[in-house]
Design a protein around this nucleic acid. Sequence first.
DNA 1: TCTCGATGAGAACGAGCGTGCGATCTACGA
DNA 2: TCGTAGATCGCACGCTCGTTCTCATCGAGA
Lengths: 195, 195
Amino acid sequence: MGKGEATRETILDAASRLARTVGLSGMTIGTLAASTELSKSGLYAHFRSKEALQLQVLEHAKGRFVAEVVSPALAAARGEPRVRALFDAKLRWNAQPGGCIFTSSAMELDDRPGPVRDRVVRDQRDWLDTLATVFHTGRTEGHFRADADPEQFAFELDGIMFSYHSFKRLLGDETAEARARRAFETLLDSVREAR
Amino acid sequence: MGKGEATRETILDAASRLARTVGLSGMTIGTLAASTELSKSGLYAHFRSKEALQLQVLEHAKGRFVAEVVSPALAAARGEPRVRALFDAKLRWNAQPGGCIFTSSAMELDDRPGPVRDRVVRDQRDWLDTLATVFHTGRTEGHFRADADPEQFAFELDGIMFSYHSFKRLLGDETAEARARRAFETLLDSVREAR
DNA sequence: TCTCGATGAGAACGAGCGTGCGATCTACGA
DNA sequence: TCGTAGATCGCACGCTCGTTCTCATCGAGA
């Protein structure tokens, strides 16, 4: 990895952190340059536009997300254990300082067309697909009711994550995690075999 | 209502609409002035700062929210009917063009201290309190399990709203409303007397 | 040692930002 | 009808934005 590549990595790390608190649009080149101890133009040279920077921030974050959340969870046993692992990992991801960049970007860009929004949509779809697939596997394993809808499960699980985000970050409510876990158990109960 | 008051109202209406799509911070005085066919300074004279404008936008929206969502729902019969009415009304509110300004502001400002954030926090707390109270009433009526936690109910219901927002506005998913309603029924099932 | 591409600094740009200040226009009570 | 207070405008301010240029530095290969 050359020197340039290393700085680029440093920049993207800082940018992810910054974007999580002020949003992808709220993040400015000047602030980012200051926080990385680079000149505006020096930083800018690594990306040819702000939009390219935003896209690379998302790509960078997605790489980390797969490595820290998705892959480890897929190591768990098929079925309910894997669903639990995925939930746990995502909860940890959301709990990191600044919260989840995909969650904030999703809300920020929901009404602003463009390549960045397209990318966010793709990532969100990927995440929901992952959830649905993992749930579907669990259904095949016989852990969940045969008539339970994987996409509906993904819808409801993601809702828990959103609510967690709001309680924890906006309201500063310390019961957020407990509530999220409890909601998760309720959700599992509702899709389990016996009723 | 004097002329000034009327224009102020017009401005706040336009501002609510604008803020829902670009965020309270993304909204600029220039753009807002253009969309109301006022000069920047003419518009600015109604508010003494951008922050004051943001606060008044929230207050304005809250007035409409109470009138269009909370009050009508409180007219329904105590207990489950009232909970349903509240859910329905909030769903309609979220479905309006641009979505729910409180939802987007909540995500936008979760990490940016200041009076505007404080206001958003207060509004979000009020909303959760309303949900919890209405649910509590239903519990007293014997519609819900005695050990069901109103705040937990509010947490989970709000999660459904968030997920609805995401599916509908970000993903453009037409099944969003159906999924939200289905999730709501599941939630009701989980808190009902018989198990 | 010399050269050259990669890396970054520095200064500057046009545009748009929030904000303020007088001057004008307009509606309404005396 | 007139006077005036309030509503609105035109203009300009200092600043920051994203972006673009030129130029210095540095390290690796010839």
